[in-house]
């Protein structure tokens, strides 16, 4: 059974690895519709961009030689985190493997940090400024990601066996923390300050070109998908334990992850004019408030 789960996880991981650029293409189309534009010519536009980067010349400045290695390492770690989240989604019906979940969170943070280290090695001042901003945001957000994912999955399972209004409220609250934490972690507006836009000269990725840039972008999109799948898993947890395991709930979770990915894209479009500098402050206040309520709920008996 264990071997079958591992095999199935590997199979789904290799299929799902192709999905994020396609989802990004759909997101770009949706964004264009909201802005009354036509948008990219096809859903495959992001794939075309990546394939083009693959055949461009690879140029990195001196002292940035290790960037290529670090970006590749970050990509491999992201792929392993995709495997981990698929494994969690597949095994959710029987039990919850918290070791795999913990490993998943560490892998997401590691892949993010490696990308930042890669950009810092290029010694470009814009890349360094971008990295510092992103490190600040990552440290702040890591707490929300850990608390949100662990609590929402744990309480989701608890809901089936031990339903109470308080459990439901805490579950929904922890889900809200997870949604915000994954949104921030996926580097969408206004939390994309480390990549920023032309006025900040591309932030951390300013020195990447050709294949390195392609792999970085692919890894970034993959991380976004891993986080969307994590949210989908947390949402479907209470249902997973109720309905039959694999046949119905797993495909539903995959569909839900695509919906979450696109919903984040829509929110990012609507927040397009938000000032980037208030992002960190707002996030801090939000976590302070919601985590205090969560602690109180836990205190009074969950």
């Amino acid at each position: 059974m264990e071997a079958l789960t591992i095999l199935l996880s590997l199979l789904f991981t290799s299929i799902l690895a192709f999905l994020p650029p396609l989802l990004d293409g759909i997101e770009r189309k949706v964004r264009a519709k909201i802005q009354s534009r036509f948008g990219p010519p096809t859903f495959l536009q992001t794939w075309y961009d990546l394939l083009k980067l693959g055949v461009k010349e690879l140029k990195i400045p001196l002292s940035g030689e290790s960037a290529a290695f670090l970006v590749m390492l970050s990509l491999i770690i992201t792929l392993i985190s995709l495997y981990a989240v698929v494994y969690v989604a597949l095994t959710l019906s029987t039990s919850i493997d918290f070791i795999v979940l913990a490993m998943l969170l560490v892998l997401v943070a590691a892949s993010h940090s490696l990308g930042l280290v890669a950009s810092a090695t290029t010694s470009n001042p814009f890349a360094l400024i971008g990295s510092y901003r992103s490190i600040l945001l990552t440290i702040l957000n890591e707490l929300g990601l850990v608390v949100g994912s662990v609590l929402s999955i744990l309480l989701g399972l608890r809901l089936v066996t031990n339903y109470s209004i308080l459990t439901l409220a805490t579950y929904l609250l922890s889900l809200a923390v997870l949604v915000v934490a994954t949104y921030v972690s996926s580097g969408r507006l206004p939390f994309d300050i480390h990549e920023a836009e032309p006025e900040l000269a591309s932030g951390t990725i300013i020195e990447f070109s050709g294949k390195i840039l392609g792999f970085y972008i692919y890894s970034h999109l993959l991380t976004r998908y891993v986080l969307s799948l994590l949210v989908a898993v947390a949402i479907s947890t209470p249902f997973t334990a109720v309905f039959s395991p694999l046949p119905a709930v797993f495909p539903a979770t995959l569909l839900l992850s695509a919906c979450v990915y696109l919903a984040y894209g829509v929110v990012a479009t609507l927040l397009g004019r938000t000032r980037v500098d208030i992002g960190v402050r707002t996030l801090f206040m939000y976590y302070l408030l919601v985590l205090t309520v969560l602690v109180i709920f836990t205190w009074i008996g969950i």
Partner: peptide
């Protein structure tokens, strides 16, 4: 701008010459 919307031709503005074609 959205009026001419060059993204429909696969054109995108980037902030670094390293990314540019």
């Amino acid at each position: 701008t959205p009026y001419f919307d060059v993204e429909r031709f696969g054109i995108k503005l980037v902030g670094s010459p390293r990314h540019a074609d």
